[in-house]
Design a protein around this nucleic acid. Structure first.
Length: 240
DNA sequence: AAAAATTACAACCGCACCAGT
DNA sequence: TACTGGTGCGGTTGTAATTTT
């Protein structure tokens, strides 16, 4: 389902990431963080461009990410927020702990876009008005002090309790009443909600503070001695 | 059973924004 | 003020997997 790996004219690898590359990137970020994505692949011993490393980390290797199995609640949030914000995927993803903008975007295009006509006819919504209005307020609301806030009640918890079966147009109608009331509450207090719980637990400032992980995670990535062999120093040498 | 069509999603690309100089 | 480098975001592509014919 991914592009076949290949090397471009500059010798940089493109396409699908191998397990080894994932482990190298994960181990490097774990050890040194990612203050400079452009330099990172060189020090990490990866034949990738920094942009590719960043994308791989953000969309796949980051801790606390969820993959697949969107709950009806999540589905409804995406629909609602898309009505409100339009294609502001990063903004929408902020409200969905463990989801990335890329994943939300993909999900929208592959699952929800076709339901748009149904969705926008739901009562209580003034789509155009909301879009214009919220895009105006968005700058201050989402790039200011309230960025990353998350008032949505227990998405992760409810996700676990819910069936893991993928949502469909059928359960869309079944769950919409309950889900929408929850989501409306969520959206109503959106301006005063706390930061993403999952990331807060992980680190006070995910991007600038040292990488903190659970023991299980460390055990996982350090289980093989090859990992230790792959961890480079900033001077270009490698730790053994 | 095979071919064709469709779906799902990881990854790439280009552009915009921001900070530093 | 203009330029440069780094980063983030949104759109798009490529292709494996799945479904339909």
């Amino acid at each position: 389902m991914v592009r076949a790996p290949f090397y471009d004219k500059n010798g940089l690898k493109k396409g699908a990431w191998s397990r080894e590359e994932d482990e190298m990137l994960r181990a490097y970020v774990h050890r040194y963080g990612h203050s400079n994505w452009r330099q990172l692949p060189k020090f990490a011993g990866l034949a990738r461009c920094g942009k590719s490393c960043r994308l791989r980390w953000l969309n796949y290797l980051r801790p606390n990410l969820k993959h697949g199995n969107y709950t009806p609640e999540e589905e409804q949030i995406i629909i609602k927020l898309h009505q409100k914000f339009g294609n502001k995927w990063s903004l929408i993803a902020e409200k969905l702990p463990g989801r990335t903008d890329n994943e939300v975007k993909n999900y929208w295009h592959s699952h929800l876009k076709k339901n748009k006509e149904i969705t926008i006819s739901m009562p209580g919504d003034s789509l155009e008005g909301n879009l214009n209005e919220t895009h105006q307020s968005e700058k201050s609301e989402c790039h200011g002090e309230d960025v990353g806030n998350n008032g949505f009640p227990h998405i992760l918890e409810s996700s676990l309790a819910m069936s893991t079966e993928k949502s469909s147009e059928d359960n869309y109608s079944l769950t919409s009443n309950v889900a929408l009331s929850t989501i409306d509450n969520f959206l109503a207090k959106e301006d005063s909600v706390p930061p993403l719980a999952s990331y807060e637990e992980f680190s006070g400032d995910f991007w600038t503070e040292p990488f903190l992980v659970q023991d299980t995670y460390i055990d996982d990535i350090c289980s093989g001695e090859d990992i230790a062999l792959l961890v480079p120093n900033f001077d270009g040498t490698f730790l053994l």
